[in-house]
């Protein structure tokens, strides 16, 4: 059985329609899950709350829900839906959810500020999820003209880190621009209204913002400066108390991984129902992203890289990069797919 919980913090305008769609979808998921359960499995059902960002990067979670893979593992999932990962992580930190889907930037922000988090697995990586969308009418035909401009970003998320990386890699000091903090869902409208000259954000808001500006937009992206890692996280207490549940979650995600790889069209339809994104966008995402349940060395490097960036930028309580091996829960994934764990420890 799947129950859903509405998070007012995560949903803004137009959320009523999306909420209705999501409710219908989850009702269908509940029926499907119930059908997939055997009587013996129904006896050992365990309740679990998942805080899920309705982004393509959580496609495996969405597929596992829709296909009833969680239920098949004996999990009674209550999903908390959010627009992106940072509020989902906050659900876990506030013990509103057991497991969250979130990118690495909010994770290092929390850890560097004293939170205890265990990364269970990476469920998606992408080098093109983030981009800077600019208004041409503000004299920004190339990235060089970003100097001195007002650029919106959702601080504490990948959009902020990407903006920093992009600017630095292209020889523009961060101090040469003015960064404005905006929620991800607010950025397209703010850019369209001309409140900012450009905005660093993530899919699908990059696409929404570019489409809102039409030919008046210019998008700057660079796959060489950033790799977004979308992960599943929980508190260490939860992982220690419920290792079996974590294993079941990972098994369901691995089934979803197979489904996404072998039946991409059906998988994209499921993701479309969750995210509201359609056709070409999802096909493009499927080509450039890597939807797989892993724990790889690159995640460790990214966590350390972004931690060093945060230390340099300021805003962290910690004074040094922590040993992230202590924040990675390897045993869960090792128990179900050892080959997916390539972190050296």
């Amino acid at each position: 059985m799947i129950r859903t919980k509405w998070s007012p913090l995560a949903w803004g305008k137009g959320g009523v329609t999306r909420l209705f769609q999501a409710l219908l979808l989850l009702a269908a998921c509940s029926a499907s899950a119930a059908c997939n359960l055997h009587p013996s499995e129904q006896k050992t059902v365990e309740p679990v709350t998942l805080a899920i960002a309705t982004l393509p990067d959580t496609a495996l979670c969405q597929i596992a829900l829709s296909r009833g893979y969680f239920a098949a593992e004996g999990l009674d999932v209550t999903p908390h839906l959010h627009r992106y990962g940072k509020p989902a992580l906050e659900d876990v930190l506030q013990r509103k959810a057991d497991i969250a889907t979130v990118a690495e930037t909010p994770i290092i922000h929390s850890i560097m500020n004293g939170d205890r988090i265990s990364v269970i697995a990476t469920i998606a990586t992408s080098k093109r999820s983030n981009a800077v969308v600019a208004r041409r009418d503000r004299g920004i035909p190339t990235f060089e003209q970003l100097r001195g401009k007002t650029i919106a970003a959702t601080l504490g998320t990948t959009s902020e880190f990407f903006l920093h990386s992009y600017l630095i890699a292209h020889g523009i000091p961060v101090a040469a621009v003015r960064i404005v903090n905006l929620d991800a869902e607010s950025i397209p409208d703010a850019l369209a209204r001309g409140d900012v000259d450009a905005a660093s954000t993530l899919s699908p808001y990059t696409t929404i913002a570019a489409q809102a500006l039409g030919t008046g937009s210019v998008t700057f992206e660079d796959p060489d400066v950033f790799r977004a890692n979308f992960t599943m996280v929980a508190t260490p207490e939860f992982v220690r108390a419920h290792p079996g549940m974590v294993t079941k979650v990972l098994k369901a995600l691995l089934r979803a991984e197979d489904f996404a790889r072998n039946r991409p069209a059906e998988a994209q339809r499921i993701v479309a129902d969750f995210t509201g994104q359609q056709g070409e966008f999802l096909r493009d995402y499927w080509n450039q992203a890597h939807l797989a349940v892993t724990l790889d060395q690159a995640l460790l490097l990214s966590l350390e890289d972004e931690s060093e960036w945060l230390l340099r930028k300021g805003g962290a309580r910690e004074k040094a990069v922590p040993n992230y091996l202590d924040y990675l829960y390897l045993d869960g994934l090792k128990s179900v797919k050892p080959a997916a764990v390539t972190i050296i420890n």
Partner: peptide, 20 residues
């Protein structure tokens, strides 16, 4: 130096990904 660090970490990441 920050630029070099940024490039270097990305390069290491790419090399690691390549080997994977």
């Amino acid at each position: 130096q920050e630029v070099q660090d940024r490039l270097l970490i990305q390069l290491n990441t790419r090399i690691y990904e390549t080997i994977q």
